[in-house]
Design a protein around this nucleic acid. Structure first.
Ligand code: DGT
Ligand code: MG
Length: 449
DNA sequence: GCCGTTTTCGGCCCGACTGTTTTCAGTCG
């Protein structure tokens, strides 16, 4: 049975091949949207299917529902098999090459009859691409550089790695004369768990100094583009970053744009159009008769649209527009709302800090309850605690509690191993003496059900 | 191909940068 990812991959492939084929762009868009929608779906599409409700999935209409049905029933799709015969599947592997899109790919394929990435590289090296219409020596070199960049290109970067990197760049940009503000944008500001690149927005009257400094940052491997409003770079490790510079009086529209997501932006722009306004990163303009509204803050952007400000974390076009319209945006849980940390490891097992250090740090962050859930005895690699050592730990926790008074409540707990036979690591009588017990699996994960 | 309290047909966001081009197409954000 195909899962959502496999279905999504199938529709992305269809979109890619259709685009190379030269199909109506909105049709390819529909397949792409359906694919994205499947990726972000909370439930398996097969469940909708069993209930006969496939068309309730956003972006799925009659035609795509029928294709999902065929894929779930047979595991195959006649439409795609036929399409692959018209447009070789290999061509889709060219799309990740920067500067190559569906139009150029189709032209190169039809002119030279080549389909694999290796053939493309060879053709470019032989100088066979430069004579085609709309192409020249530079575009040929760009393709070769693009192919080379594919191997350098890192996967998406975890937020925890990307955020400090971006803040470091922002720190350097803030030092530049004339820079009023610099903020993380894109998926970084939306706090996605991984980001594809580092997007940064700078407020400054004049952009040239920022652009010059940006492309000369340490460890820049190549400059992908450099203009008066936008520049982008690739670092040696393949990580990409881009910066936009807009004047302070446009910072609101610019930040809304740069924060995205793309789909959220499109929704905002549609709402603007319904009000007779055209929204871009620069401003709102009146569709009839002209006239411009500048927004220095995001609040002004949303206010102009008749919406409350939407937290970046929600800007994914996953229902937040509807919620905003109805004034029913959820109140997000923030770090300051966290009152208890009930899963921690101290240096009693595989943690690095002492319990006192951790309890003090937690108290400093406003946390009211901390539970020490060090590993249990059978997890030897983590220095799991014997019952004897638990007694020491209990005594130490008493001392810590005394020292810290009522600033924080310290609980004596354990992350107890569930062993291969399903039993727990300690006898029930001992578990009953703990304040809290977590049970978890670390070994023998491949047993039959 | 999808979608709809202004539409069941006719729209579907809008602009920057590059390289090629004598005014714009393609790609990308
Ligand atoms: N209006 C509009 N804005 C776009 C479009 N594509 C991208 N943007 C805006 C919103 C994005 O959040 C922002 C940065 O683009 P990115 O490609 O870096 O996307 P994002 O950072 O959201 O995701 P990522 O983790 O980088 O894949 O640019 C578009 O087609 N239209
Ligand atoms: Mg990004």
């Amino acid at each position: 049975m195909m899962n959502n990812r496999q279905l999504a991959d199938t529709f992305t492939l269809i979109a890619n091949l259709l685009e190379i084929k030269g199909e109506i762009i909105y049709k390819t868009l529909a397949y792409r949207k359906a694919s994205e929608s499947l990726m972000g779906l909370g439930r398996e599409a097969s469940e909708y299917w069993k209930e006969g409700k496939l068309e309730e999935i956003p972006g799925v209409g009659k035609a795509i529902a029928e294709k999902i049905d065929e894929l779930l029933t047979t595991g195959k799709l006649e439409f795609l098999e036929k399409l692959k015969k018209e447009v070789p599947e290999d061509l889709a592997t060219w799309l990740p090459v920067p500067t190559l899109g569906p139009k150029k790919i189709a032209m190169i394929w039809k002119t030279h009859g080549i389909t694999t990435l290796a053939e493309l590289e060879a053709a470019a090296k032989e100088g066979k691409l430069r004579d085609m219409p709309g192409m020249g020596a530079k575009s040929e070199t760009a393709i070769l550089e693009g192919i080379a960049s594919l191997s350098r290109r890192s996967a998406r970067i975890p937020l925890g790695t990307a955020y400090p990197l971006a803040m470091e760049i922002i720190g350097q940009l803030l030092n530049i004369k004339g820079v009023v503000d610099a903020q993380p944008a894109g998926s970084l500001r939306r706090m996605r768990s991984t980001v594809g690149d580092l997007d940064i927005l700078v407020a400054a009257k004049d952009s040239s100094a920022v652009m010059e400094a940006f492309v000369k940052l340490p460890r820049v491997n190549r400059v992908l583009g450099k203009g008066p409003t936008k520049s982008s770079i690739e670092f040696n490790d393949g990580v990409r970053a881009q910066v936009w510079v807009h004047p302070p009086e446009k910072f609101g529209t610019a930040l809304a744009y740069a924060t995205g997501s793309k789909d959220h932006n499109v929704r905002l722009r549609e709402i603007a159009l319904a009000k007779g306004l055209s929204l871009s990163e620069h401003s709102f303009t009146k569709v009839k008769g002209g006239g411009e509204i500048l927004c220095a803050t995001e609040e002004q952007v949303y206010e102009t649209l008749g919406l409350p400000w939407v937290p970046p974390e929600l800007r994914e076009d996953r229902g937040e527009i509807q919620a905003a319209k109805a004034n029913k945006l959820p109140k997000l849980i923030e770090v300051k709302n966290i009152k208890a940390d009930l899963q921690t490891h101290s240096n009693y097992s595989d943690g690095k800090l002492t319990m006192l250090e951790m309890a003090q740090a937690a108290a400093k962050r406003g946390i009211k309850v901390i539970a020490f859930t060090d590993h249990s005895v059978s997890l030897g690699v983590t220095n799991g605690l014997s019952i004897e050592r638990h007694k020491e730990q209990a005594a130490e926790i008493k001392k810590i509690q005394k020292k810290l008074g009522d600033t924080i409540t310290v609980l004596h707990a354990s992350e107890v191993e569930i062993k291969a036979d399903g039993t727990l690591d300690y006898p029930d009588e001992f578990l009953a003496s703990l304040d809290l017990v977590l049970a978890s699996l670390h070994t023998s994960l491949r047993q039959p059900r």
